[in-house]
Nucleic acid binder design. Structure first.
Length: 194
DNA sequence: TGAATGATCACG
DNA sequence: GTGATCATTCAT
């Protein structure tokens, strides 16, 4: 039993989505499914609600997006393009929709398992996309709704200061046609830490 | 640049 | 019920 770092409480997620998206950069995402796999989060995107046309929550709650309106710190996983599972963490206070899409990470532990799941030996390209990341770490629709803060989940975060202090870059979000006026994609360049 | 691939949601 | 639309990835 691994304890979730006390940093990543419900209160951590119950804040502004962009702030959470930035603070997740450099932290360790862990899954314990077929052994322990972990990776440093290097790319995130923030999604809001009724003011954000690119968000699933833009038009109000639906069966799929209802978790975005619920308890912060919960996993929101959905099927994209009929093929790929995309992994989000719910943000903002309950009742206010928000989520952070985890778009990219750098592999740390469980590389062999992740390469097998992806059927590749991709090196640093193993987790460099939201669909690749879920595939490598074994995250699927069955994880939708899991509380990442409770400590009893097989998906959780661990605090890492290894890449603290890196500059946070921001751009428009990838793969969306609307809402490009807002720079809600955040990423760090780990090469700068060497 | 386009194919693969299937759930979702706005229609009415 | 129907059809356009995808928070993607990979091969051409």
């Amino acid at each position: 039993m691994v304890l979730t770092a006390k940093t990543f409480t419900t209160e951590f997620f119950a804040r502004d989505t962009s702030l959470v998206a930035r603070e997740l950069l450099g932290q360790l995402l862990v899954t314990e499914k077929d052994g322990r796999c972990s990776a440093v989060i290097i790319e995130t995107e923030a999604y809001y609600g009724s003011r954000d046309p690119a968000s699933h929550a833009y038009r109000g709650p639906t069966p799929r997006n209802r978790l975005m309106f619920g308890k912060p710190g919960v996993a929101y996983v959905y099927l994209c393009y009929g093929m790929y599972n995309l992994f989000n963490m719910v943000t903002q206070e309950k009742g206010t929709p928000g989520a952070v899409l985890i778009r990219g990470a750098f592999p740390v532990e469980g590389r062999k398992v992740m390469e097998k799941r992806r059927n590749t030996s991709g090196g640093r390209l193993l987790l460099d996309g939201p669909g690749k990341l879920t595939m490598a770490m074994g995250i699927g629709l069955g994880d939708n709704g899991k509380d990442l803060t409770s400590g009893g989940s097989d998906i959780f975060l661990e605090e890492s200061k290894k890449f603290a202090g890196l500059a946070i870059n921001r751009t428009g979000r990838v793969g969306v046609k609307v809402g490009q006026d807002r720079l809600l994609r955040f990423y760090i360049n780990m090469d700068e830490s060497i």
